[in-house]
Simulated assay, not measured.
Amino acid sequence: MTQKTGSEVERMTVTRIFDAPRELVWKAWTDPKYVMQWWGPKEFTCPVCKMDFRVGGKFLYGMKSPDGQTFWNAGEYHEIIPFEKIASSMYFADSEGNKVEAADLGIEHEAIEGAYDVTLFEDLGDGRTKLTFIGNEPAESAKDSGQLEGWNQILDKVAEIVAELVDAK
């Protein structure tokens, strides 16, 4: 994994506006039963999702590709402001949550040293919520590597879940 430093690096950012109250968007983002439905890009599934959702808590996601290969991500929650903000570290892992270097998996990945992934939830009024995900990858390399496209596909899945939650309400 290549490390970049400095606050001058433009970070990968994806934004989506949901026609749903912030509490429902938060629920879709933080409840493991929903995370299992959206984690991973289109056509990927998430058969494993373990979350200790508290500051200092850890998480482990297993993402299965259409060809049956499982990729693992793990991390830790560093800041949680209910219905407003989540800051976490995330890294490639093995099935036990132990950190694995991206290069060892044959994956090119750049990270900004000391940067956390940050998810912001903004109440826009009129029952709408803006979710902004700011990754720890430089924007240019995230675009080139497919990370940006993958996160947009993830947000498409989140939108489907949020719509179902709104309909069920």
Rank of each mutant, 00 (worst) to 15 (best):
F71C: 00
F71K: 01
F71W: 13
F71L: 08
W72I: 04
W72C: 08
W72H: 12
W72A: 04
W72Q: 07
W72F: 14
N73H: 10
N73I: 01
N73Y: 07
N73Q: 10
N73D: 02
N73K: 10
A74Y: 14
A74F: 07
A74Q: 06
G75D: 05
G75W: 09
G75Y: 00
G75T: 04
G75M: 02
G75I: 00
E76Y: 07
E76C: 09
E76K: 15
E76W: 13
E76G: 04
Y77S: 03
Y77H: 10
Y77G: 05
Y77R: 10
Y77F: 14
Y77Q: 07
H78K: 10
H78F: 01
H78A: 02
H78R: 11
H78G: 03
E79P: 01
E79F: 00
E79K: 08
E79M: 09
I80C: 00
I80D: 05
I80V: 03
I80S: 01
I80E: 00
I80A: 00
I81F: 01
I81V: 14
I81R: 02
I81Y: 00
I81D: 01
I81E: 09
I81Q: 04
I81T: 05
P82W: 05
P82N: 02
F83R: 03
E84R: 14
E84I: 04
E84N: 06
E84G: 03
E84M: 03
E84T: 03
E84H: 14
E84P: 11
K85S: 01
K85L: 08
K85A: 02
K85D: 00
K85N: 05
I86S: 04
I86M: 05
I86R: 07
I86T: 08
A87N: 09
A87Q: 13
A87H: 12
A87F: 00
A87R: 13
S88R: 04
S88P: 13
S88W: 09
S88E: 09
S88N: 15
S88C: 06
S88H: 09
S88Q: 14
S89L: 08
S89F: 13
S89T: 14
M90I: 06
M90S: 15
M90P: 13
M90K: 04
Y91K: 13
Y91Q: 09
Y91C: 13
Y91W: 08
Y91V: 10
Y91R: 12
Y91M: 08
Y91P: 10
F92R: 07
F92C: 04
F92I: 01
F92L: 05
F92A: 01
F92M: 01
A93Q: 12
A93K: 13
A93T: 06
A93C: 08
A93H: 11
A93R: 02
D94E: 04
D94W: 12
D94L: 03
D94H: 06
S95L: 07
S95D: 14
S95H: 15
S95F: 15
S95A: 12
E96H: 15
E96P: 05
E96Y: 13
G97C: 10
G97E: 13
G97W: 03
G97L: 00
G97A: 11
G97S: 11
N98G: 05
K99C: 09
K99P: 07
K99D: 06
K99V: 15
V100K: 15
V100E: 13
V100S: 07
V100P: 14
E101D: 14
E101F: 06
E101H: 12
E101S: 11
E101V: 05
